[in-house]
Amino acid sequence: METLTLLSWAFDVTLGLTLMWLAWRALASEDLFKGIVLFIAFGLLMALAWVRLDAPDIALAEAAIGAGLTGALLLGALAKLEAGAESRSRRSEILPRPADKTKVFSGLLVFLLLALVVMLVYAIVKLPPLASGLSAQVAENITASGVSNPVTATLLNFRAYDTLLEMAVLLLAVLGIRSLAVVQEPRGREPGAVLDMLSHLLVPLLILVSGYLLWVGSYAAGGAFQAGAVLAATGVLLLLTGWLPGAWFVGWPLRFLLIFGLAVFVAVTLVLQLFGASFLEFPPSLAGSLILLIEVAAALSIGVTLTALFLGGRPQPEPPSSGRAEKRNTSGTQPS
């Protein structure tokens, strides 16, 4: 027993120090590509830390979203950044020699950050040991919530309002990206044979996994966000293998899928309000099925949304030239 705790202690300390080291290397690395790869490794080790902290739901979300999709987004952005590197030569002209005043600034910064660390450590160490949290209340009400996984119960019932707004944040990100960029050139890239075969195998498997995570979320680790993230991984894989949404799809069907989760969420709660429930109140007898309904819609939307984030802009079926012209013309904000 003694050696076991010692061993797990050693494991935790190693993991924590490795996390810090990885974060440091990811941020300090001179090569951006290396930095991103280290960051993905950091995310995966974070998932391990969540497992150690008895948080399998977060571990899944972290591995899928925090490490996987964020990593894909970062690598995709870096690729685009380097592809459009036409102005590199210009950079050297605007780089005079460094001045010396940064020294004082750096010193001040390090001092302030050290003060921050000291403050945080002191605050954490001095925290009252008996921070009971809300576990008792959750346990008391779990039967009325319609699901038995307390994290899902919190996300989709006790604090469902947070989740509703969070899905609005996700939608907002897509709206912002669609307002910023048009994805013009179709990436009619031929995937390698391995990737092609892999995708044939992986896509059905991933969809299956996603459905499983959704289903299992009501009583074990999993749920709409994890399922949506796996679905998005499928979408990203498809995009990477050269699959592009058809012209018919990028108009209203895509927009509909993007808002579907949020729309179902709002619609369910509005209908229930007509029957006398308060906002986001699910009657205990129906709660289980209603939560599943909302989760299915949410997972679908989350999957499509995260894939759209990876695509990085508003897909445009028209030839690139017209899309570009339209963008330039509307950049002025004069009224018509």
Binding site: D57, L73, F225, I302
Partner: peptide
């Protein structure tokens, strides 16, 4: 175990990827 912070972190992770995606674009 207290599930409320767990739910908060899942919310936070989703918010983080939204912000990251917008920032990258």
């Amino acid at each position: 175990f207290d599930p409320v912070p767990h739910a908060m972190v899942i919310t936070g992770i989703v918010v983080a990827i939204s912000a990251t995606a917008l920032a990258l674009a």
